[in-house]
Design a protein around this nucleic acid. Structure first.
Length: 566
RNA sequence: GCACCUAUAGUGAAAUGGAUAUCAUUACUGACUUCGGAUCAGUCGUUGGGGGUUCGAAUCCCUCUGGGUGCACCA
């Protein structure tokens, strides 16, 4: 529709001998409920033409009159906007299309057949998967699904630090705690890391000891250590898998620093002289000439730093992409904290200097930090809130709620409600902004919340069931003269999906769904659906069905399950 | 010190440079003898200060103030 309007306006401009300019054709903000679409073309033109904007608008309006099939009327409003009102049929047809397309509703082909690798969550083995990891997990999952909605061959992966000082500290802690291969579990690993970190900070002797341990892990030189390491890594990864399942993520592949390190080191060493330089025993990249800052890629002990592991990672992604899809990736996204933005620019620049074909294909989407309104979190002191324990707490609250006033009592659904509540609080905020988390208050089941969306969906399912029993069959042939506001919102869904992807901003989907649910609930309060004596009941049931499809698709994009009952 | 990000009702947020800044929450008032009250309707309350660009600024530019983050051998 927008495209058709735009084209007609362009034609009319030519016909009227007006200059070609950039202008907007879009949905109006909801307070001018009178119009379905608007354009600012006259406002943009007025200066160039040297006329009053309203005058220009009138001229274009007159020339457009009757030219566009789906438009009922056009008028000039405010300072010189063109307001278009769509035919009633436009929305009626749209409802029918939604019901017919089902789980295809909202899709587009902007990334059709492109290979996109989305990397997110990135927990470190031997450390806790804490509530800070939920933010990039929720964001990355949603971005990945937006790419899927846009036709991309989307691959979800993680990148994990399975070597390095944090691992040495954890192993040291395990040794101190007298852990054996048999006794290691996720809880013990958390304790071990905290114990190791504290020991590291407590004395220089222990620091030397842990650094030595780090080297032996790297070179796999001590069999006893290797056993603890292998078991610890395995336990960590299994634990992560459990968490991913609860959170609703499924990763196809884990990349490890122990693997990307050597790959990166080779690449870096091959480009000493043209990209990297040697300085004080280390290999560095001088970022200043690119407006960035200098970073060390290989330290003076000859070990690759995180920078080099990231350079290697890109190569590993490329190799893996060829292996699983038969071709190079078209785009890769890394979701990680905003604090890594400057750093990421440096490694990306270095990578593209090595491999110019990567330019523009490597992207960082920063996620904001999650702060607690009270107290600080630190895995070094063991003072963390594990992701799963947060889910568990919220789930208990949900169960309590269900026992009070729900039609069912189901642990699985309570968990889905909990995850919805948590993800909603994260995803409603524009990506990259910090999130203040008040454990008591911020996870809400009322108003602006994940459960509100789920509730609305369950409610529709329920009323449609009642309607079916009463003999009301959803049908769009007999529509009331005026369209319901909620229909107009449903029709916008695909454009919201496209915008959310191009801006890397799932919060647009959250805002939209909340508005849709709210609008539906108002509609629901005012209109009777399961009532055979109402001649518009079949139409209203069709509208309710279209809202349900939209909610379900939208929640899917957010990585939130839509239970039929709750 | 340099660089980047950020500031919107009491609180948490939204607003591709567009029309009367939108939601939620809090507080208060109500709702069909109930198609699920995790709902709906209503009242109260907002763009940090100062300049500028623009037909039009929460949004862009400058500046001040407050907050955050990053600036070789950690990840």
């Amino acid at each position: 529709m927008q495209a058709a309007l735009r084209q007609e306006i362009i034609d009319v401009l030519k016909q009227l001998d007006l200059p070609e300019i950039e202008f907007v054709v879009d949905y109006p903000t909801d307070k001018n409920a009178g119009a379905d679409f608007f354009s600012n073309v006259a406002l943009v033109l007025s200066k160039q033409v040297g006329k009053n904007p309203r005058e220009v608008a009138e001229q274009i309006c007159a020339a457009l009159e009757g030219k566009i099939d789906q438009v009922e009327s056009i008028e000039v409003a405010g300072p010189g906007f063109l307001n278009f009102v769509a035919h009633r049929d436009f929305f009626t047809t749209s409802m029918a299309q939604v019901l017919a397309s089902g789980d295809q509703w909202g899709k587009n082909d902007s990334w059709q057949d492109k290979v996109v690798i989305v990397e997110y969550t990135d927990p470190n083995p031997f450390k806790e998967l804490h509530i800070g990891h939920i933010v990039p997990n929720a964001l990355g999952e949603s971005l990945a699904r937006l790419f899927m909605m846009s036709g991309a061959d989307t691959r979800r992966v993680t990148f994990q630090g399975d070597v390095g000082m944090h691992v040495a500290k954890a192993i040291y802690g395990l040794q101190q705690l007298g852990a054996t291969v048999e006794t290691i579990d996720a809880a013990l690993l958390g304790q071990a890391y905290a114990a190791g970190s504290q020991a590291f900070d407590s004395s220089e002797e222990i620091q030397v000891e842990i650094k030595a341990l780090n080297k032996s892990i790297y070179h796999k030189s001590d069999e006893a250590v290797n056993q603890l390491y292998d078991k610890g890594k395995q336990v960590s990864l299994e634990y992560f898998e459990q968490a991913y399942e609860v959170l609703g993520s499924e990763f196809e592949h884990n990349f490890f620093e122990s693997v990307t390190g050597p790959v990166g080191k080779k690449l870096v060493e091959a480009h000493i002289g043209d990209v990297f330089t040697e300085s004080k025993g280390a290999v560095i990249f001088e970022g200043e000439e690119h407006g960035l800052h200098t970073r060390v890629f290989i330290n003076n002990e000859g070990l690759p730093t995180y920078e080099t592991k990231d350079v290697g990672l890109i190569q590993c992604k490329e190799d893996w992409s060829k292996e699983v899809t038969g071709k190079s990736f078209d785009h890769t996204i890394t979701v990680t904290g905003t604090e890594q933005q400057e750093y990421f620019k440096v490694t990306t620049k270095a990578s593209t200097l090595i491999q110019p074909e990567l330019a523009g294909k490597v992207e960082l989407v920063p996620n904001g930090m999650l702060r607690l309104s009270e107290g600080k979190m630190s895995s070094r002191t063991g003072d963390v809130i594990r992701a799963l324990s947060l889910v568990e707490d919220v789930k208990q609250a949900a169960l309590e709620r269900m026992r009070e006033n729900s039609v069912i009592d189901d642990e699985k659904v309570a968990e889905q409600v909990a995850v919805a509540a948590i993800k909603y609080t994260i995803l409603k905020i524009a990506a990259g902004k910090d999130i203040v988390f008040d454990l008591k208050k911020s996870i809400s089941f009322e108003g602006d919340s994940g459960p509100y969306l789920q509730y609305t969906y369950a409610r529709i399912k329920s009323v449609l069931e009642k309607a079916a029993q009463a003999g009301v069959v959803p049908d769009t042939t007999n529509a009331p003269v005026a369209s319901y506001t909620v229909e107009k919102l449903v029709e916008r869904f695909p454009s919201v999906i496209e915008m959310a992807l191009t801006e890397r901003a799932p919060h647009h989907v959250v805002t939209y769904l909340t508005e849709l649910a709210s609008e539906f609930n108002s509609f629901y309060a005012a209109e009777k659906i399961a009532d055979v004596s109402d001649k518009f009941a079949p139409y209203k049931a069709a509208v309710a069905g279209a809202v349900a499809v939209t909610l379900k698709q939208g929640l899917w994009v957010l990585g939130i399950k839509a239970p039929e009952r709750m």
